[in-house]
Design a binder for these strands. Structure first.
Lengths: 224, 224
DNA sequence: CGCCATCTCCCCTGATTAGGGTAGGGCCCG
DNA sequence: CGGGCCCTACCCTAATCAGGGGAGATGGCG
């Protein structure tokens, strides 16, 4: 996993420039990217589009891009929906996805569907360039924060092992799984709501979840 | 299910007064109940206690009560724990349980364990009297609010039928079941968080649940 | 053409949760 | 006897959720 924030290695411009397509709905950012990337000797911008639909049209008329910089938060067909379509149309293409927030959920969807890289929009321009070069060298460029999340995602599922819980925590857990609120659990277990809350916090730590929804969602899918 | 709020029917005092036991930890309320109930010609207060332990002691020394008015929110052994003990010791006794809140969870536990009636502490004194008389006539006295809950509990489970949902609502439901928050669901489904919220509200209405916890809890137990 | 359902988004309020502390008392163990 | 764990309970803040409105844009249907 290449670190984009490392300085770009001084590479000689390749014999033939990399054919690049940009899709970005925000006109300002699109102009900025175009201005910067298209003037790099390593790149040859074959398409600059404001939407997936536009990209699809333009593809007919141009040389096939080798790398697509694809915004995910697009109006019309979202970048996410576009991914499989593009991959089908251009099986060899490398797609680097970019979005405003560090949106883990979309990130996974994107990577599952075949994106090769993931950039945050806050990234500095040289990072864009580095990402494109990196992906052409077989890398998987992603911003630091993104990389951390991806790693975390592949670490073995923290198991949700009720065995690690103390007796009282298990009592509380059972109440939660029955759909009780903290007040109700407190009433059933005859303890103060604040104590239930303490147990809940400890349960979350031990089971590595961050919300009631996550806990129950996983319980619902049998992970308990 | 007798309605306690109906005026007490003018009954002649029974040949032998009903032997009554009171258990109530709050001294003020205990005094009030004692003052009122024990002066009714229909009643004979054999025990007035401030705790289950005290009641158990006093039972040795007195005539066996026919009806016990039992507070649930007791320090020491809770009224809930006391129920089976008392039933075992005095198999014939009728127990009327009382508590401050309209606490559905405890209510069910109490009724399952053999309580014959359920009063809210906010009840006016004549209601207490009516409850005792009612239970001796084979009734199951309970405050209005309580009765409604009990009825609701025995109505067939409102099914949690995802079929009643619209397409978009089902989308949102799936996100919830995966443990996503409303923001995350909004991101995945590309709609505003407020829209997700609207769908969630509608889902709750249609599936007859009142919280995320209840929904997921039931999903966890396969009711979906 | 109106009517109705759906989907979208917003406003508001109040209740509940999430997550960070601190803290005392009981209990066991080296 | 000090240290660690558990249970209990409270403080705090910020975020989220629950539930009540209203409102505009579709699209079908009688």
């Amino acid at each position: 996993m290449t670190d984009l924030l490392a300085p770009t290695p001084p590479l000689a411009a390749p014999a033939t420039p990399i054919r690049l397509a940009l899709v970005e709905d925000d006109a300002r950012l699109r102009a900025l990217l175009k201005e910067y990337l298209c003037h790099q000797p390593e790149f040859n911008c074959v398409v600059v589009a404001g939407s997936v639909e536009e990209l699809l049209d333009e593809l007919e008329l141009s040389l096939p891009p080798q790398v697509i910089l694809l915004d995910i938060g697009l109006p019309g067909m979202s970048g996410l929906d576009a991914l499989p379509v593009l991959k089908k149309r251009l099986p060899e293409v490398e797609i680097i996805v970019q979005t405003v927030f560090d949106d883990v959920d979309r990130l996974y969807q994107a990577l599952r569907t075949g994106a090769s890289g993931y950039l945050l929009k806050s990234s500095p321009l040289p990072e864009y360039k580095a990402a494109v070069l990196d992906v052409m060298r077989g890398g998987a460029p992603m911003s630091r924060a993104v990389a951390r999340k991806v790693l975390a995602h592949f670490t073995p599922v923290p198991s949700l092992d009720a065995a690690a819980l103390t007796d009282r925590e298990r009592d509380v857990l059972n109440c939660l799984v029955e759909g009780l609120g903290e007040k109700q659990a407190a009433a059933r277990l005859t303890m103060a709501p604040s104590t239930v809350h303490t147990h809940v916090k400890n349960i979350y730590k031990k089971l590595q979840v961050g919300s009631r929804g996550e806990l129950l969602g996983r319980a619902a899918r049998g992970e308990l």
